[in-house]
Computed example of a mutant assay.
Amino acid sequence: MTASLAVQAAAEIARRAPGLTPRVGIILGSGLGGIADRVEGAVAIPYTELPGFPVPSVEGHAGRLVLGRLGGQPVAVMQGRVHAYEGAGFGALRTAIHALKAAGCGILFLTCAAGSLRLDVGPGRIVTISDHINMLGTNPLVGPNDSAVGPRFPSLQDAWDPALRRRVAVASERLGIPFSEGVYAAYLGPSFETPAEVRMLGRLGAEAVGMSTVPECIVARHCGLRVAGCAVITNLGVGLSDGPVNHEHTLAAASAAAADLERLLIGFLNDLDTPDEGHP
């Protein structure tokens, strides 16, 4: 059923944006939806008009697919996502990502808002995700496997593509945007983590924590998409500072940092066709 809906959604994408074959799919996290406004020649499709697509229920997630060009590349931008804590399962998430691939995407670039587990990486910083820890208690591939989509037991070694991460680093340096990489831990939510959980995640090797992104990476890698992503730091983890940690603060802080993420994303896309000297 998921595969059938994805094919239908891809056909609707092709119908609504004739002549455009997106190369890069982009998912925008909380407070970052404004980046979609930079898409040139934009065609916006509400998720409700795409078969099987998710319908977000959280503030800061518009729920529409924006097709056009960004940084010189044809893109399909998901302006908003659903989260595991919303309780709808992973079927719509799988459909959306499979539809992006069926529409032509070979790369999925994920963005999210996150809390920092490092005192030296504070609000406003952008962290390129180098690896992840799945603390959701579940996996989006649970259930029957469609071998036409991907293997039953996919490897997640280098799930966050090293060559794409190098390109993000190069773009960051060229644009003068402070650069760091880190491991992202996904917590189920919707409650924020306790101080004890923040300390635990730091000891496990995580540098940032949020409530999304990991399921999209797993689904994308399962179906053969290359994955890169950045977390916008909106706050220090609970117990690491006296600052507020709530959704309103997350949206405000993410919106303030969105300009740097926008520049970085456009720079990454502009450089996508240049040779990668670190990768034969």
Rank of each mutant, 00 (worst) to 15 (best):
Q8E: 15
E12F: 12
E12S: 14
L20A: 07
T21V: 14
V24I: 14
G25P: 02
I27R: 07
G33P: 04
V39N: 03
V39W: 04
A44D: 11
P46I: 01
Y47H: 11
T48R: 15
P51L: 04
F53N: 10
V58M: 06
H61E: 12
A62G: 07
R64V: 08
P74L: 06
A76V: 09
G80A: 09
A84Q: 12
I97P: 01
L100N: 12
A102T: 09
F109H: 12
C112T: 14
R118T: 07
L119W: 14
L119P: 09
D120L: 03
V121K: 08
D131V: 04
I133D: 06
T138Q: 13
G143S: 13
D146W: 04
A148C: 12
P151R: 12
P162V: 01
L164V: 06
R165Q: 14
R166V: 08
R167G: 05
V168F: 15
A171Q: 10
P178K: 05
F179W: 15
F179S: 11
A185N: 10
G189V: 04
S191N: 14
L201M: 14
G205W: 08
A206C: 07
V209K: 01
H222A: 03
G224C: 00
L225H: 04
G229C: 06
G229H: 11
N235Q: 04
L236P: 03
G237S: 10
S241W: 01
G243Y: 11
L251P: 11
L251K: 12
A252K: 15
A254P: 07
L261I: 02
I266T: 15
D271T: 05
L272M: 13
H279M: 12
